[in-house]
Design a protein around this nucleic acid. Sequence first.
DNA 1: CGTTTTTACTTCGAGACTTGAAGTTGTTAC
DNA 2: GTAACAACTTCAAGTCTCGAAGTAAAAACG
Lengths: 143, 143
Amino acid sequence: MTESILEAAVVANHELFLRTNDRLTATLAEQGLTQATAHALWVIDPAEAPPTMKELADRLHCNAPNLSFVMNQLTSRGLVERSADPADRRSRLVALTDDGRRVRSVVIEAALALSPFARLDTDDLLHLVSLLGKALELAAAPA
Amino acid sequence: MTESILEAAVVANHELFLRTNDRLTATLAEQGLTQATAHALWVIDPAEAPPTMKELADRLHCNAPNLSFVMNQLTSRGLVERSADPADRRSRLVALTDDGRRVRSVVIEAALALSPFARLDTDDLLHLVSLLGKALELAAAPA
DNA sequence: CGTTTTTACTTCGAGACTTGAAGTTGTTAC
DNA sequence: GTAACAACTTCAAGTCTCGAAGTAAAAACG
């Protein structure tokens, strides 16, 4: 009973994610990005201090070698730049270039416009964000 | 303004999906499954009539060659069986084996237990499913 | 009917992603 | 000062995904 409600929620969340990604395919291709590179670009907020590779790997739920691979692509496309962290020279700080900021904006705008969520009204959206946020908080809390 | 609420919703949706998958990794490995094969198993509901390959490709948002690849793995693991559709001999009907049903249950149970949504109470869950369902409906509706 | 077009599926080959193992460089702990 | 650890990269192997091409069956057409 509650079980099937939970399953409906998990399935709907999954489906919404897949559908958004599907619709974004064309935009990503236009920008010369793949899902992996686009996601990496997304999680680098130009308004915040440049994150380290380790921090980015956490955000992307991927491992270090994978991130190096993705960052090499973004670097060769001229969208990000790596520099040594003055505070810990083992670390690399990753910052968006001007081009990177531009492309990131394009991707995010497209994703928001294409997401099925875009059709919800503000009340529903606020409620939805509240519920999703609650789930994420509870997930972080101790068992 | 509304923009940032929408972005929060899209990001939270994505993050919840990634986090659930992350936690499921161990279970999938135990069952000898990958994400792709597990997802394929999930969308074959044993309570319904066996779907065709085409129908499955739609559900998985993947193309035909990819589905063939995934189904070959599930078939060689003895989890599904393909048979010609008597109504249209071009089509293949895909059905779970007894083992397939067992493994599918294990995966779904684990996913539901590990999903951050599992910590929401029934009221919140009902509300959430309603909002997610609304978004999916609106997405299907005409522009 | 018989031919043409379309549809469902598979195979193949190339490209892209992901991962573990191993190595480099720099930091921390003793 | 040396041993342990941490951040990152490179490399090689495995997996996933896709387009192109091929097969078989159904549908459309005259």
